[in-house]
C-alpha cells in the first residue's frame, strides 16, 4: 500500500478544457499538490492542446494522454480526480466512489452543467471549484484535502418502471398480470 504513489487524475472528458490543464500544471498549483503528498499527476486533455509543461517537478511525476477508450482503470487508481463538470464523467466518478473535484469551465456561457455540479456539491458528493485559477490558491487545496465526500447512493433501476406502471394503471405485481 505504501509503495503506491498518491495519484491525481485530471480529466476533461470528450471535450477540451485547456484552462484546467494549464492551471493544474502551473507551479502555484504543483506546490500545493506536492505539499499534500501527491507524487503522480495523470492528465487526460481530450481535444485540447497537449500540455508542454509535462516533466517531474516538486517530486511530482506527470504524464498525459488525449483519450482512452475507458478511464475506469485510471479513475480507480487515482486518489483524487479533478474533472470538468460534464455529467458523464461526474457520474462515472461518483459511481466508482472516487473523491472528485469538479472544476467549472467559467468561459462557457449559459453553462447548465454547473447546475448538476452545484446540486451534487450541496449534497456533499463532490467538491466544486468555480474557476480553474482557484487551483493556485493554497487554501482551496487545504479544503480539498479535508473534504470528506458523502457516498453517492446507488440508483434504483426500478424507480422509473414503477412510476410508468403506476401511470398506465398496470399492476406492479407481475404475478397478478399473468393470471389475468
Amino acid at each position: 500500500m505504501s509503495s503506491k504513489k498518491k495519484t491525481i487524475l485530471v480529466t476533461v472528458g470528450t471535450t477540451q478544457f485547456d484552462d484546467l490543464v494549464r492551471c493544474v500544471t502551473a507551479d502555484q498549483a504543483l506546490q500545493s499538490v506536492a505539499n499534500l503528498g501527491y507524487h503522480r499527476l495523470v492528465i487526460q486533455y481530450g481535444k485540447g492542446i497537449r500540455p508542454t509543461t509535462i516533466s517531474t517537478k516538486y517530486g511530482i511525476e506527470m504524464m498525459c494522454y488525449d483519450f482512452k477508450s475507458s478511464l475506469r482503470e485510471d479513475m480507480l487508481q487515482a486518489d483524487l480526480i479533478l474533472s470538468h463538470a460534464g455529467a458523464g464523467t461526474v457520474m462515472e466518478c461518483l459511481t466508482l466512489h472516487r473523491k472528485l473535484v469538479a472544476v467549472i469551465n467559467s468561459k462557457l456561457m449559459h453553462n447548465h452543467q454547473m447546475e448538476l455540479a452545484v446540486a451534487l456539491q450541496q449534497r456533499g458528493h463532490l467538491y466544486m471549484v468555480e474557476k480553474p485559477p482557484d487551483l493556485w490558491v493554497p487554501e482551496i487545496w487545504e479544503a480539498i484535502d479535508q473534504f470528506d465526500p458523502v457516498a453517492h447512493p446507488a440508483g434504483d433501476e426500478f424507480a422509473f418502471p414503477r412510476l410508468l406502471d403506476d401511470f398506465c394503471g398496470f399492476s406492479n405485481n407481475g404475478d397478478n398480470s399473468k393470471i389475468e
Binding site: 475507458s70 475506469r72 458523464g88 457520474m91 462515472e92 447512493p153 440508483g155 434504483d156
Partner: peptide, 13 residues
C-alpha cells in the same frame, strides 16, 4: 411533474 429521485446510476460503459 413526477419525481424519480433515485435514478442516479449513469455509467458510460
Amino acid at each position: 411533474s413526477k419525481l424519480v429521485d433515485s435514478f442516479v446510476r449513469r455509467q458510460k460503459d
